[in-house]
Design a protein around this nucleic acid. Structure first.
Lengths: 158, 158
DNA sequence: TATTGTTATACTCTATAACTATA
DNA sequence: TATAGTTATAGAGTATAACAATA
């Protein structure tokens, strides 16, 4: 195996470092509004896609289902969302934004935009476009890789 | 403020999504070896830079100092590192890899490399190079932004 | 006095698994 | 039986602040 491992060029490290820096500043900014990263994840998803089923919301936000189950109760207590039983399937739960939840979301959106702008300022339009394109492409690769891996194809890929 | 916020093009989201996908798979792979993401962060840093002072290690790994203080005790119990008082400064703690720690690190390195390869396979050499370059440039921007922000220049940047 | 690291407390998130209520 | 969600428990990590030792 190669031994020329240099952290400074290591893509997962570079991704993490940037993502965490943004998240850290964003969290500080959003905290006074009563938001957290996880709450924002839920809100932004609901804003983008409308009412959600709990399980799907867990998948799309990458929040563990048991964590989300409790988070969503907390958010209902804060009047940000409503949980109601699905009419179609008595087991399923439908999560929906309230007017108040929508309000908070719209309050956070410009902050989110500001932090993206902070991240990409200094990049040219072309660089930003490339970054978005490459990150999306990479994610598709990773999903395929994860599926192959789960199928047992390469249990220990090293 | 702009209201055309689309999660699918939102750079922090794209970064997070990719970083988490990699981290998730990496964690599963490394767990049987007795590693965790945090332990790997420490090991890779020590591997790259040699002995570290606790405070600097906290900064460079982005692990909270109180968390790291305890993690490092755990790692010493596992014989992965040694903690010793600095000769220069009786307050400071020097963290150093043991032979066993070095061994585990070298065991993890190829796994780390494999996951980077999984991420960038499908990307051309040029795209990978661009990605690295842009991520580094972005991080520099973010550090500058964070410093300005901390200086109070734009307490609420929205 | 300031700095380095340790420890305590409370909180959030995760992992796992047992549980319920529907289907 | 299988699925959707809930709940309990234990383990990591974070945030904050009080604390001891050293500078």
């Amino acid at each position: 195996m190669k031994n020329d491992f240099d952290l400074r060029d290591y893509v997962p490290y570079l991704l993490n470092r940037a993502a965490e820096k943004i998240a850290e500043m964003f969290s500080e900014e959003v905290a006074p509004l009563g938001g957290t990263r996880q709450i924002w994840r839920v809100l932004s998803r609901l804003r983008a896609n409308g009412p959600y089923r709990l399980g799907d919301l867990a998948t799309d936000t990458s929040i563990e289902i048991s964590t989300l189950s409790r988070l969503v109760v907390t958010m209902q207590r804060k009047r940000l969302i409503v949980r109601r039983r699905s009419a179609m399937d008595g087991r399923a739960l439908t999560i929906e934004l309230t007017a108040q939840g929508r309000e908070l979301t719209e309050l956070i959106v410009p902050i989110a935009i500001a932090y993206e702008e902070a991240a990409i300022r200094g990049l040219s339009k072309a660089e930003t476009r490339e970054l978005r394109r490459i990150l999306k492409k990479m994610y598709v690769n990773l999903e395929i890789f994860a599926a192959e891996r789960a199928a047992g194809g390469l249990a220990k890929s090293a």
